[in-house]
Design a protein around this nucleic acid. Structure first.
Lengths: 218, 218
DNA sequence: GGATGTCTGTGACAAGGTCACAGACAGGGC
DNA sequence: GCCCTGTCTGTGACCTTGTCACAGACATCC
């Protein structure tokens, strides 16, 4: 087993005993689109992402869903931990957004590490605190910001080389809105010269203008 | 120093050494309305509520705000912990909703206890996990449920002896809506015989009917 | 080329948030 | 008692957003 632990940011300075325990676990590869957990399912263990991206959604009864957060390399899928620590069952859905390499730390190992390794505890706690903060921001945006502003922020956030490759539906999910609303907003953006739209992608024409919209309060 | 630790559910079976450390801390009393933390403020320590209730709000730029959760006896104000664990600064506001007796565990003691006391760790983690779950439910309700349903649920939740003593503004804050909307909804409820309204209070006339509304999906 | 599935545009409508007020009620001071 | 003040509630108008029901446009595979 070659050591994967170095690859996980925050775990690189872990104690030797804990590292040996972790190194016994074999990373797995998940194809893009694989679901890690479903709503209502009990968590099997603690997931650490080594490469790729996992996206965690909350799905409403009407089928609409909203992106809670995405887990990149070095991050952990905290949701799955709730069940290990006295919370209720899982209520979101985690899907591999790209091909993913990840390690699943089983419940028993997880609990043992939490008791014996300060470094591991720190890793878990930091991940927890950051997710919590992230969810607060999400709640804040959904509850208080208008679609225009959220959409502008999402576009800036996802742009690579001035382009966002995503369908209107994906953007709507990311900001917790509906597809039609995103279509109309993008249309308005295009008419003001902020973006140009193509099937499956949005080209940013005026990032500064978008940033101003994204920053607008309320 | 008489032991207050017994009073905190979840801490009653803590190790002796940790208990001695905790017993050195003196509980404080906060008047109703006292703010514990303000947005943007760095957390001073970890708060455990012994009696009374603390309510934590997220405030939008327009002044509208939404109740994140309330902390009752035995609970801890997790928000304040984020800053102690690698998160950013506080972004909510915590206010004593009643007279409150609480203990503030300073940062140094908190970190030491986290390292040395499994029972304390369990207490903190459980609190964390429950808050996280609670925030997920809040997000779910705000994003996917209609006001009618959220309001019905809030009324049932807050009723004492078939009556809810709260202003429309307070109810609106609790469900993340606006005062006028709550006024109109309550009016509609009253016209269907579900409730009767008075200045500063709502009397539940048909809890079963409200429960049906609260349970409606979407 | 045609068939199919995905993506996007559009109109109509309902729900909810915002603004601007106008009363209604409670409590204190006189 | 009466006025003043502050809080609470009711209402109409308007805009944004979410939902429903489609129609058209594009891509891909055969």
């Amino acid at each position: 087993m070659t050591g994967w632990v170095e690859a996980a940011a925050g775990l690189d300075r872990i104690e030797d005993a804990a590292r040996r325990r972790l190194d016994r676990l074999a990373p797995v590869t998940l194809d893009r689109g694989t679901a890690l957990f479903h709503p209502g399912e009990a968590a099997k263990g603690f997931v650490v992402v080594l490469a790729g991206r996992i996206e965690v959604f909350l799905t409403g009864p009407s089928g609409r869903d909203i992106l809670l957060y995405s887990v990149e390399a070095g991050g952990s899928c905290v949701q799955t931990t709730l069940g290990l620590l006295g919370g209720e069952d899982y209520s979101g859905e985690a899907v591999a957004a790209t091909e993913v390499r990840a390690v699943l730390i089983p419940r028993a190992d997880f609990l043992a590490l939490m008791d014996t390794s300060p470094a591991f505890r720190g890793f878990v706690f930091t991940a927890f605190a950051q997710r919590m903060q992230g969810m607060l921001h999400l709640l804040e945006r959904v509850a208080f910001q208008r679609v225009e502003s959220r959409l502008a922020a999402a576009l800036l956030d996802r742009a690579e080389a001035g382009e966002v490759r995503a369908t209107h539906q994906e953007l709507a999910t990311a900001i917790g809105s509906a597809r039609e609303v995103v279509s109309r907003r993008l249309d308005a953006f295009a008419r003001s010269g902020l973006v140009a739209t193509e099937r499956g992608s949005v080209i940013l024409r005026d990032p500064g203008g978008l940033a101003r919209l994204a920053a607008v309060q309320d």
